[in-house]
């Protein structure tokens, strides 16, 4: 283990220990928050009894679908937009201001259009993530050295082969930056819309527990969401780092 990693783990452990102490001493009262050790025990019993399995499955499935859609549509759109200069010029300012739009504000409209099912929630997660994937795909494609494109022409590659064998492989580490955003945005979209209005899912259960002062349910579920998104993010970051290291860039 290197020193940076040891320091990082120690810093996290220290933060948790302080929180534990504040809860135990009573600076943070039990109605506000349970001590971290208690949250861990509660989380274990939630997972062991399978009480919220349906909610967990629903949220993970919807977030997974929103994520997969944002990544696949985002990469395809990025490649297409990169190829069309005029379209690119028209869209660039829109991409730059896209994240000024509170996408969640469209949720009621989407419920009217699609009903109170999974579709509006997945759409919110997708809409939040897709532009981050497009923008980062474009960034990666912009960086492809001209000489590689010339080499591809000498190799007589078709435009589709150029995209799949040269430009996209070159852009992968940059695309992964967008993919990391897509993970976070998928969960923000799904959990957020479950909070606001839904008939199930982890966001719904957290909101329900909150209204009932049920900290033994609320905090473990929050921790579970954190664990899932952070692990997904770390996995992608590792992959990204491995790819960059192979290119001598990390």
């Amino acid at each position: 283990m290197n020193r940076a990693l040891v320091l990082r783990v120690l810093a996290l452990a220290a933060a948790v220990a302080v929180l534990e102490a504040l809860c135990r001493v009573g600076v943070i009262d039990r109605f506000t928050m349970q001590p971290p050790s208690r949250i861990a025990v509660d989380l274990w019993s939630i997972l062991a009894t399978g009480k919220f399995n349906a909610a967990i499955l629903k949220t993970l499935t919807n977030a997974g679908i929103a994520f997969a859609l944002a990544v696949s549509v985002g990469i395809a759109a990025g490649v297409a937009i990169h190829g069309l200069k005029a379209l690119r010029e028209g869209l660039d300012p829109l991409f730059a201001t896209y994240y000024a739009i509170p996408v969640l504000a469209f949720y009621p409209l989407l419920i009217i259009l699609f009903g109170l099912g999974d579709a509006p929630q997945i759409l919110i997660g997708f809409m939040l993530g897709v532009v981050a994937v497009i923008v980062n795909t474009l960034n990666g494609l912009d960086r492809v050295p001209r000489v590689l494109l010339k080499a591809a022409r000498i190799g007589r590659l078709t435009p589709v082969e150029v995209a799949t064998q040269v430009t996209l492989p070159y852009a992968v580490p940059y695309v992964l930056t967008g993919v990391k955003f897509a993970v976070s945005y998928a969960f923000i979209g799904i959990i957020g819309s479950e909070f606001v209005m839904s008939r199930g899912g982890m966001g719904f259960e957290i909101a329900f527990a909150y209204n009932n002062l049920d900290n033994a349910t609320m905090y473990p579920l929050i921790v579970l969401i954190l664990a899932v998104t952070i692990s997904a993010n770390l996995m992608i970051a590792r992959w990204e780092k491995a790819l960059l290291a192979r290119r001598g860039l990390a």
Binding site: P145, K150, P169, Y170
Partner: peptide, 24 residues
């Protein structure tokens, strides 16, 4: 053609770079 700039594909190993044009 061999260019002045480095035209190696950075994500491919030496043998995969060499075999690249043979794919087709």
């Amino acid at each position: 053609v061999v260019f002045q700039e480095d035209a190696c594909f950075p994500w491919l190993t030496v043998v995969d770079n060499i075999a690249f044009s043979l794919r087709k």
